[in-house]
Amino acid sequence: MAYGETPSQTVGPYFAYGLTAGQYAYDFTDIADTTIAGPDADGEHIRITGRVLDGNGDVVNDAMIEIWQADANGAYTENPVDVASSGFRGLGRCGTGTDAQNRFYFDTVKPGVVADGTAPFVNVIVFMRGMLVHAFTRFYFDDEAALNAKDDILQSVPADRRDTLIAKRVETRTGVEYRIDIHMQGDAETVFFDV
């Protein structure tokens, strides 16, 4: 290894006018926001929402969550031209400081299966003041029990912690929501991955 990695540093409390300007109504553009899939994207349109809780169980109002996910066919869309034509961006970014309950929320489509023997899921990164290194996790879906039972990575998680990764489907007046909270610490501490 010729060069050492540049250390990670915290995103701090004041990221919003740089990274999530549109969501927080600052006069700057975004490269990603809470819309992962636009209305024209193929697939079942869903909202993913939840809270981030600290070791006291207090809701964190200055976290930033990013999601990177496959489209409804299980394909990752890296090419910006494909993003523009399909309405599927794959990337989402949301701060927890604008929702009345300090939730993160993403409008997207349910991802397809990326490879045989895996369950659908979205990749998640958690950033916040108080984290010098961001943490990777995943959200799986509770109505995919059969596939979840065969997913190698989910099954590699100790059984008593697996539920921390599974979002719960709720039918609301405005559509389908999957709800999941991220617990940084405590009995229900979310499983984070070293990817």
């Binding site: 600290d54 070791g55 108080g130 990575i153 610490q185 984070f192």
Partner: peptide
Amino acid sequence: ILRGPTQAPLAI
């Protein structure tokens, strides 16, 4: 102290 995960991340 209250925001960092306490358990080691699982290698995948």
